[in-house]
Design a protein around this nucleic acid. Structure first.
Lengths: 219, 219
DNA sequence: CACAATCTGAACTTGCCGGTTCAATTTTCC
DNA sequence: GGAAAATTGAACCGGCAAGTTCAGATTGTG
């Protein structure tokens, strides 16, 4: 396979040959699946969106199901990486815990309210009956991973005397719940863009009650 | 030919005439839609599930879309009523706030983890693109309604000196978030039955941090 | 320039389902 | 008992999309 030649996107013009068609197909597949759902998404539309002919799609990914699986997995991995990067920011700040949590909470909410994030969760919900294994993969590489990473940070903050979290994983779970819970009703399942001001406000509220419950002054 | 008296299930003799076919059709529709999603659910299967012929379905509800809408609306109303009944239990108990919140939280989680509740949320997520108005209706008669009812109870408890919630709606939102948030990862979108013990534990944890943040001792 | 592999556009087969029609039967109501 | 309304089974139409096939265009390589 000569997919090697300049896989790093030399520019814009799509060279009619075989370059990184595969990635383009996966991206287009996620977009179209997000638009119509699995059942009504036709492969022709995916091919068109990717600037590719239909047989080419079937050449790279044998059928619609594997196409869906690979597209979902790629999207989940990307979202997970972004969220982990945000959580890792909680390492340095040791002084002002509230400010650090505010910022991390805000950025987590930004990722949470991204169009592709909403689409990913929507598709997981929608097709859980047809692809039961996908939810295991997504939760393992998704929610659980982030909860654990956040629990690590909480444990460090607790040892440093900045928090009083006796159960780091429980505290992490509840912090995430306080962040994402109030968004469900505001974002209308992703159909309504939430202004940054509102994200900041929700993050502040979440951090406020989190610190009231797990703040330094608590036993 | 007549499908003959008592073709099946001697328990409840099916009165072949027009009785409450409509309700049977709506129930069957929700079941089948939950099973296959809107796109792949065929009306023939709904008719069979309801013990009815296909033209009868189209006789009561003109097409597949209105059938879906009515089925979803009925399911949402039922779920809302059940949740409101639970929240209303928070009226009498004035003494032991923690015990009352524990019980209400547990029962709310039970409703939240019901199969039909999960199916309802799944379908809302899945078909939000095709039925954008459904989410408004569901949220208005669902989440918002319950949040407001709970906020009412919180306000009463605050005035009675049992809580220190300066913002009742925010407190209610966060209480619900603390309850339902940790369930997402545990219930696998409803594909995994969560034992009662776990529901109790999650409710206790939610009430614990809620009372730490909004308990009587707080300002 | 020629060879091999791939990509492309289009047409085709196959299967499924929404929605309708219709004659025969059943139920309800008077 | 009898008429009106509803139900039933079955067949039919129309449309849509998955997946395949095929000849011809394009690309990379020696």
């Amino acid at each position: 396979m000569n997919t090697a030649t300049s896989s790093a996107a030399p520019g814009q013009h799509v060279p009619r040959g075989r370059i990184d068609k595969r990635q383009a197909i996966l991206d287009a597949a996620f977009t179209v699946f997000a638009r119509h759902g699995f059942a009504l998404a036709c492969v022709q539309e995916i091919a068109t969106e990717a600037g590719v002919a239909k047989p080419t799609v079937y050449n790279h990914l044998h059928d619609k199901e594997t196409l869906f699986r690979h597209a979902m997995e790629a999207a989940a991995n990307r979202a997970m990486a972004e969220n982990l990067a945000v959580v890792d920011q909680l390492t340095d700040h040791g002084a002002d815990v509230r400010a650090a949590l505010d910022e991390v909470g805000y950025q987590l909410l930004q990722r949470h309210c991204d169009d592709r994030s909403w689409a990913l969760r929507r598709l997981l919900n929608a097709e859980v009956n047809r692809f039961p294994d996908l939810i295991d993969i997504a939760h393992a590489t998704g929610a659980n991973r982030i909860t654990q990473a956040l629990a690590d940070r909480v444990a460090r903050l607790t040892l440093a005397g900045h928090l009083a979290a006796t159960e780091p994983v429980e505290a992490a779970e509840q912090f995430l719940a306080l962040l994402t819970g109030p968004m469900e009703s505001r974002a209308r399942l992703g159909t309504r863009p939430v202004p940054d001001r509102e994200l900041r406000a929700v993050a502040r509220a979440a951090v406020r009650t989190f610190l009231r419950a797990y703040g330094e002054g608590r036993a």
